[in-house]
Lab assay of single mutants.
Amino acid sequence: MAAGGDHGSPDSYRSPLASRYASPEMCFVFSDRYKFRTWRQLWLWLAEAEQTLGLPITDEQIQEMKSNLENIDFKMAAEEEKRLRHDVMAHVHTFGHCCPKAAGIIHLGATSCYVGDNTDLIILRNALDLLLPKLARVISRLADFAKERASLPTLGFTHFQPAQLTTVGKRCCLWIQDLCMDLQNLKRVRDDLRFRGVKGTTGTQASFLQLFEGDDHKVEQLDKMVTEKAGFKRAFIITGQTYTRKVDIEVLSVLASLGASVHKICTDIRLLANLKEMEEPFEKQQIGSSAMPYKRNPMRSERCCSLARHLMTLVMDPLQTASVQWFERTLDDSANRRICLAEAFLTADTILNTLQNISEGLVVYPKVIERRIRQELPFMATENIIMAMVKAGGSRQDCHEKIRVLSQQAASVVKQEGGDNDLIERIQVDAYFSPIHSQLDHLLDPSSFTGRASQQVQRFLEEEVYPLLKPYESVMKVKAELCL
């Protein structure tokens, strides 16, 4: 049975990233139509530049190519590739079939990587351009969430054990800070992308030097003109047959890092959902379990974690691919890159769409948070109580021993009897502590235990987050809708 299948058929496997999760716009960027249309555009740009620099290419040939950029006979191309065992030459023939007058000058002087690699770089750039505003929107939604809850005390956790208090907004800023680093890295790697350009079979530009009869300047002009037509500021000066596969490492490393950030955020949300302090959106008709109707599973956060793990592992592909590119190139890269580049971007696209949807509907339960604080705060307040007693004339050592005994009794009630923490009640009825009984409410005010959390939130948002989001103001209103 021949390899390949009808990918629109229910009898043929289709990647869930495309069929179930990723956005239509990201799927289109990695589609065959987008790819092969870009090949034709690159052939047109090459012909236009070659004509401008004096090669015998007519206006009629150029116009014929322009008129057929979208006229792609995919069936013919597939048949040609089956016959020739070469995808680029299959599309040269297919393009030439609908451009008979231009057929002889299509791909003039070029090698397969002229269309293959340059198209990949265009796709990487455009895919990054799709991700950047999506990530900015996630940051914006979380920034709104953090600002609104900047002063809401909550129990902090280290080692997932109760620690000092923080605020809900401050905790959210930990998430935002990681995503801001990801946004900066995505922008950097996007701006650092260079075009492969017009380089020939081993990167020496020998074929173009021959076409222009040894004119170095025209060869350099050709490279520059096509690079500018493709919208790049610069091209690699040095290439082998391909652009260095280190570029793929750079791009997928940034995406993998984004995956790590999203995994951490969504894990926190899942843990908070278990504590009943916070939940992701839950639709009115949504079913959490087929057997347990009360369940409210954090399905979206779980999906993000599941896909983020996949995204983090994909960076190993370009690392290994770059390491086995012998001399000017081997074909070890080809099949692998067809999979890992598309999957990385479709996965990143999915987790950003999902995280935006989550961040637009996060639900906080202040009463649950308050109750958990009441359970733990008495123990945390013991040092403040000791200091207040010393100020009232008591002995630190005597007070410490009193607190120690009462704390152990209260802990026994919590752990052995399943009761509430009654340390404060014990202190309130103990005559030894009568000098500070009137101060206990103040000493137990949760806001006095959150330090500068709310001020940190305000400063972080104003100095770091809002300036970073400013270039994306025009796209901030787009909502994230999930079908599944």
Rank of each mutant, 00 (worst) to 15 (best):
A3R: 11
A3P: 05
G5E: 14
H7L: 13
G8R: 15
R14F: 15
R14C: 15
S15R: 10
A22D: 06
A22S: 15
P24T: 12
C27D: 15
F28M: 11
F30Q: 09
D32Q: 12
K35L: 11
Q41S: 08
L44F: 06
W45L: 06
W45D: 14
L46V: 06
A49E: 04
A49Y: 00
Q51G: 07
G54P: 03
L55C: 10
P56S: 09
P56Q: 07
I57W: 03
T58N: 10
Q61W: 05
K66N: 15
S67V: 12
S67T: 11
N68C: 10
D73K: 07
K75C: 11
A77Q: 14
A77D: 15
E80K: 09
K82N: 12
K82G: 13
R83Q: 12
L84T: 05
H86T: 01
D87L: 06
V88T: 09
V88E: 01
V92E: 09
V92R: 01
G96I: 08
G96L: 07
H97A: 12
H97T: 08
C98Q: 13
K101S: 11
A110G: 14
C113A: 09
C113T: 05
V115Y: 01
G116K: 02
D117N: 00
N118H: 06
L135E: 08
R137H: 09
S140F: 15
S140E: 14
A143F: 10
F145T: 11
E148W: 06
T154I: 10
T154A: 09
T154P: 00
L155S: 00
L155P: 03
F157I: 05
F157G: 04
T158E: 00
H159K: 02
H159A: 00
F160I: 05
L165K: 02
T167N: 03
T167F: 01
T167V: 02
G169I: 01
G169K: 03
K170L: 08
C173I: 02
C173V: 06
L174N: 15
W175G: 07
I176W: 02
L183W: 11
L183H: 15
L183F: 06
L186T: 12
K187Y: 12
R190Q: 13
D192R: 10
R194V: 06
R194C: 13
R194Q: 08
G197M: 00
L209Q: 13
Q210L: 07
E213S: 11
E213Y: 13
D215E: 13
D216L: 07
E220Q: 09
L222E: 02
L222V: 11
K224T: 10
V226H: 04
T227G: 09
E228P: 04
A230G: 07
G231I: 01
F232T: 01
G240S: 08
G240E: 02
Q241M: 04
Y243K: 05
T244A: 11
D248F: 00
D248S: 00
E250R: 10
L255M: 11
V262D: 02
H263F: 00
C266N: 07
L275Q: 04
E277C: 05
F282Q: 07
E283F: 07
I287W: 02
G288D: 01
S289I: 01
S290E: 02
P293E: 00
N297W: 04
C305S: 12
C305K: 02
L307M: 14
L307T: 15
L307F: 15
L307P: 01
M312R: 04
T313W: 10
V315F: 11
M316W: 13
P318V: 10
P318G: 11
T321S: 08
A322D: 05
S323W: 00
W326K: 02
F327H: 07
E328V: 01
E328I: 04
L331M: 05
L331S: 01
D333A: 02
D333Y: 03
R337V: 02
C340R: 02
A342T: 14
E343A: 07
E343W: 03
A344K: 00
A344F: 01
A348Q: 02
T350C: 12
T354L: 14
T354A: 15
L355P: 00
S359V: 11
S359A: 08
G361S: 14
V364C: 14
R371G: 04
R372F: 03
I373S: 04
R374V: 05
Q375S: 06
E376C: 04
P378F: 03
A381E: 08
N384K: 06
I385L: 14
I386L: 03
M389R: 09
V390E: 03
S395D: 14
Q397E: 06
D398F: 09
H400F: 02
E401L: 08
V405H: 10
V405R: 14
L406I: 13
Q408F: 08
A410Y: 04
V414T: 05
Q416N: 12
I427A: 08
V429C: 13
S434E: 14
P435I: 08
P435Y: 06
H437W: 12
Q439S: 08
Q439F: 06
L444W: 09
D445Y: 08
F449V: 05
F449P: 03
V457N: 04
L461Q: 04
V465Q: 06
P467I: 10
L469V: 14
K470W: 12
K470I: 07
P471N: 15
E473M: 13
V478R: 15
E481A: 15
L484W: 14
L484G: 15
